[in-house]
Write a protein that binds this DNA or RNA. Sequence first.
DNA 1: TTAGTGATATCC
DNA 2: GATATCACTAAA
Length: 167
Amino acid sequence: MKRLDYDFFHRHALEVAPELVGKLLVHNGQMLRISETEAYCGETDTACHASKGRTKRTEVLYMEAGTIYIYLCYGMHWLMNVITGDADDPQGVLIRACVEANGPGKLTKHLGITGVQNRGSIVTSPDLWIADDGFRCSIRTDKRVGIGYASEEDQAKHWRFILDQYE
DNA sequence: TTAGTGATATCC
DNA sequence: GATATCACTAAA
């Protein structure tokens, strides 16, 4: 079992996102198998929060790879992202679901993750990290969901990665 | 299908 | 200061 390090996240979101599927998300002693992720790729991606520029909320996206971006949606659901790529390049991967809980809001609730983890680092945090235990599986892709505000071409991109079948 | 919830951004 | 928006969920 190996903790994913800076080098793993220091790549393009479209490389990191599919590889995170099947990994273990560890928080305060709980371990959950990630089963669904989505990639958000920079200011040119109209679905990405940073597409409208850098603000107090989105500046986390510009931080270095491995930074945790937690965002409160609809007043009650914490959504968890991990920043990838170079610093000042606002891209990241949304953790959408794990085997034990489907839905990004349910996942963070299940793990007890809240905004206090925002701006932390998945590489150095003592109680929140992602591990590779050698698990292998096949993955399928699909369109991202819940991004109706994005351009049609961005909505059409298959940047959602779903655990399909155990090997 | 619809209500609920609150931080953030955008507009006065 | 006020309002509109939102990477969702549960209940019906």
